[in-house]
Amino acid sequence: MRIRELTRQAGVTPRTVRYYESIGLMPPGEREGNGQHYYKEDTLLRLR
């Protein structure tokens, strides 16, 4: 899922996700061919 869907389901902001990635609390999303980050279901569970 893209960051917008991830943040909507987790109830946080994209800034929160990027901050958690920057300090190592969660791994960065995987990049697809178009350069956008995609997140797996386990990332959503961890973020909740």
Rank of each mutant, 00 (worst) to 15 (best):
L45T: 14
P28W: 05
I3D: 09
Y39T: 00
T13E: 07
E5M: 02
G33D: 14
N34M: 11
Y20V: 03
R18C: 11
L6F: 00
M26S: 07
R18I: 13
E30I: 14
R31T: 13
Y20S: 08
H37C: 13
E21F: 01
V17I: 03
E5L: 03
L6V: 04
L47V: 05
K40T: 11
Y19W: 09
Y38M: 10
D42W: 15
G33N: 14
S22G: 04
E30C: 12
E41F: 11
T7M: 03
D42E: 15
E5I: 06
Y39R: 01
S22T: 11
T43H: 15
Q9F: 03
R15C: 00
E21T: 05
V17S: 02
T43W: 06
P28K: 13
L6R: 03
T16H: 08
Q36T: 12
R15N: 10
E30M: 12
E41S: 13
V12E: 01
L45F: 10
E30R: 12
V12R: 02
R4C: 09
R48C: 06
E5G: 06
P14I: 03
E32V: 12
R18S: 13
I23M: 09
K40Y: 15
L47D: 09
R4N: 15
E21L: 04
R46P: 05
I3E: 14
G24K: 02
Q9L: 15
T16I: 00
Q36L: 12
R2M: 10
E21M: 06
Q36P: 00
Q36W: 00
P14S: 07
E30G: 10
L6Y: 06
Y20P: 06
G11M: 04
G29Q: 05
M26Y: 04
R15H: 10
R48T: 08
S22C: 06
K40V: 11
R2C: 11
G29W: 03
Y39W: 10
E41W: 13
E41D: 11
H37S: 15
L44G: 00
R31M: 12
R31P: 10
V12G: 02
T7S: 02
I3F: 11
G33K: 12
R48N: 08
R2V: 14
A10L: 01
Q9V: 07
L6N: 03
E21D: 02
T16A: 09
P27A: 13
R31N: 04
R18D: 13
G29R: 01
M1R: 00
G11E: 04
Y19P: 08
E5S: 07
R46S: 02
V12L: 02
Y38P: 02
